[in-house]
Computed example of a mutant assay.
Amino acid sequence: MSKRILVVLSEYGYWGEELVGPLEAFDARGYRTTFITPTGKRAHALPPSLDSEYIDPPLGRSVTTRDMARRARALDDSSRLDNPLSLAELLPERPYFSSLNHLRELEDYHRRLATATTELLSGFDALVIVGGSGPIVDLANNERLHELVLAFVAADKPILAECYGVAALAFARDWETRRSILWGKHVTGHPKEYDYKDGTGFLGVEFNMGPPPYPLEYILRDATGPDGGFHGNVGKETSVIVDHPFVTARSTPDSVPSGELLVEVLENGLRRHGW
């Protein structure tokens, strides 16, 4: 039976290649792909990711080939990303502790959450969180996404996260222990050396963020703990880490190999790569 992949996209902009890379690997295997966003709005690519002339400030060169820009634009202009699923509609929101009938609401929340995650897990074999700067806004601290991530981990189903999408893994935590699910794991992600000093951009937000609001490397180093590790692989052209059930990709050029490695996880049981 064909594998089914659930792909999470930010409504504030994804990086074109970071969707194209995995998606083309899935298409080549005949996988069925479904897209989901925080509120069901259609996702769009960040304009610099469609521009082969754009010079990435930390790297001092273009990170998008003309061919990849063409493929990313064709996907973004197509109807394939229309009508995504909605995290807000499919997964309940944990009630505030100040709610008038908190205990009953919390019990109802757990019932509805169990039903929702069971239904989603029955329909999908893997979860993908696409990167770019958009996830900083609406995916990193999205509690509904955290619960979905926790459910995939509990079911031992793989999760691929790219670039700043990896932050959602660091913040997905058991409610009681508050320990990251990355504790003891090996991951990669956007290192400090590759972060912008200015001009971090989002779709629909008209102000200059400057640098990213948090350094992902520091968060991942803390989240993985003394027995895990963060691997920036600065100076190496690609950085993809597999530490089952997680496949993590550092940035744009890691998109194609990360998709290929997720296929290896699904087809051949790959559990470790890159460390």
Rank of each mutant, 00 (worst) to 15 (best):
G123D: 12
E105W: 06
K41L: 13
P47W: 02
P191T: 14
T188W: 04
P215M: 06
T252M: 08
L182R: 07
A223Q: 07
A45G: 11
F246V: 00
R32D: 14
G134W: 09
E105Y: 06
R112Q: 15
R94M: 01
E264F: 00
K185L: 10
D27C: 06
R250E: 13
S122D: 15
R250K: 14
L121V: 09
H244A: 15
W175L: 04
R221N: 01
F152S: 09
V234P: 08
R73D: 03
G165V: 06
T115Y: 01
G228S: 03
P47I: 02
G259F: 09
E260T: 02
T34S: 14
A154P: 02
A223N: 01
R29W: 08
E162Y: 00
G204N: 01
H110P: 02
G201Q: 01
Y96M: 01
T118K: 12
L90W: 12
C163Y: 10
V187N: 03
D156W: 02
L103H: 07
L148D: 08
L87Q: 01
R104Y: 10
G131D: 05
L106V: 13
E93I: 02
A88I: 03
E143L: 10
T64A: 03
H110M: 12
G165Y: 05
V242M: 10
S258M: 08
K197E: 14
H231D: 04
R42K: 09
R104C: 09
L261F: 01
T37E: 04
R70Q: 10
T37N: 05
